[in-house]
Design a protein around this nucleic acid. Sequence first.
DNA 1: GTCTCTGTTACGCTTATCGTAACACCTAGC
DNA 2: GCTAGGTGTTACGATAAGCGTAACAGAGAC
Lengths: 255, 255
Amino acid sequence: MQTKSLLISSEIVQSLDVGIAALMAVSQMPDATLSELARKTGETKPRILRMLRTLEHRGLVRKSSEGTYRLGNTAIVLGTAASTQVDLVRVANPILERLGQKVNETTQLRIIDNRESLCIAKFEPTRDLRVHSMIGRRRPLYAGSYKVLLAFLPPSVQAQMIPETLLKFTERTITNRVKLGAELQRIRAAGHCVSHGEVSEQLISVSVPVLAFDGSVIAAINIAAPAFRTQDSDIERYIGLLKDDAREISTGLGW
Amino acid sequence: MQTKSLLISSEIVQSLDVGIAALMAVSQMPDATLSELARKTGETKPRILRMLRTLEHRGLVRKSSEGTYRLGNTAIVLGTAASTQVDLVRVANPILERLGQKVNETTQLRIIDNRESLCIAKFEPTRDLRVHSMIGRRRPLYAGSYKVLLAFLPPSVQAQMIPETLLKFTERTITNRVKLGAELQRIRAAGHCVSHGEVSEQLISVSVPVLAFDGSVIAAINIAAPAFRTQDSDIERYIGLLKDDAREISTGLGW
DNA sequence: GTCTCTGTTACGCTTATCGTAACACCTAGC
DNA sequence: GCTAGGTGTTACGATAAGCGTAACAGAGAC
């Protein structure tokens, strides 16, 4: 008895699964040592060592001269291929860039992944002061304008996505589940969500859902900007632009 | 007896290795079916099915509604992380872009990988007629200007990198191993290589090596352009620019 | 000196993974 | 109608691949 996998363990090759876990660990902690990676994944050192050797042999991971691990060239090739194969990203990227250029602010594409929102595409303007964004960064679903992802979910699924305790990021974060529910209804009716510093102080974020042909929510696109240079008139304008572009992404996906 | 792995099989977790092989197969043949992927990897269908299910569970692969497979969101996240973790790419990318803007032509960064040259970074100008480039694309080491990668290798390693038979891509491809050896010596002396349509007709490519502190070759950067708009004076200018930038990459890597 | 970290190797137990076989479901051919 | 040759999928028992334990060497710390 070495695994406690009593639930949906079947159909999954555990060696491969742990190998991927090691790969993701390297991706999240560049220049980590073997021991650190073993701790992070909760596996034994010999096991992770075997995994890393295999990953290195495939070029997904590189061992530095100091003995620490980083992602390798194959990971770059894989990621580039992925951005052309994932329809959503391929379609959204030029639209995000065009929109970002137009408003001269940061734009993002986010999806629901594992009860969080996950950034899978972005554009940042060149101006000095701008909102920083990063592909792969996760944020809660219940705070900030990414709430739109929640708002357009069927009620039964929605409930599963909201954790028991809602962390308070700023003074304006909604931490009451009932109030959150009411807010989600309002968002659904309006078709957009504006966050005034709910996650980060002094930051305004406007999100709009990208819907499939059947009205189910696929993703969200948003504009994020410093509050001091964003007037109410800007926000109104952003909402209109986002809605147009969200529709364009939908049709670009074939609907 | 199910594997014939008599050589360096040890130290490698085969389940993980085959799983990665399946992943790379998906990356190379988007929208492939299970049977196709099993054939491509030379494994049985049930085995590949198990691998794909595990990869899907981790988000590296997505199964479309028609039952075919594509890369998934995790692959995008992984690739983005990789481009910030691989020093060479991180350092070279802005330099490649600056150079490409300056000459208004396509620029590339290539390394040796598995006896081939592999493109791991690139820039393409916006003009209508330009040389197309793709991260992940492989080219032979013995043809075109990528020969610089060979030329700066220690002679013993160099020999291992040159295949028995040299494929003839165009009329100008060198297919004689002796002639190739002489050419490599000339390149090493000159510090650069110019290809006049050795791989593709009507294409000129200029490459220069990126050297480590000890003079060993790390990578090559190149400019690729249509022959009709590239004068000898342009080529001379490209060589100078490339040499400067190659040195800048070297120092950017800490040397 | 010991103590505690590293990374690494060896080896025997056992369980996870494998391939075979059989399954159901197609479309094509005729 | 019936094969015939494709899919993708599931079941199961045999086996060897992969596991953890243990022990190793080396590097600091103090």
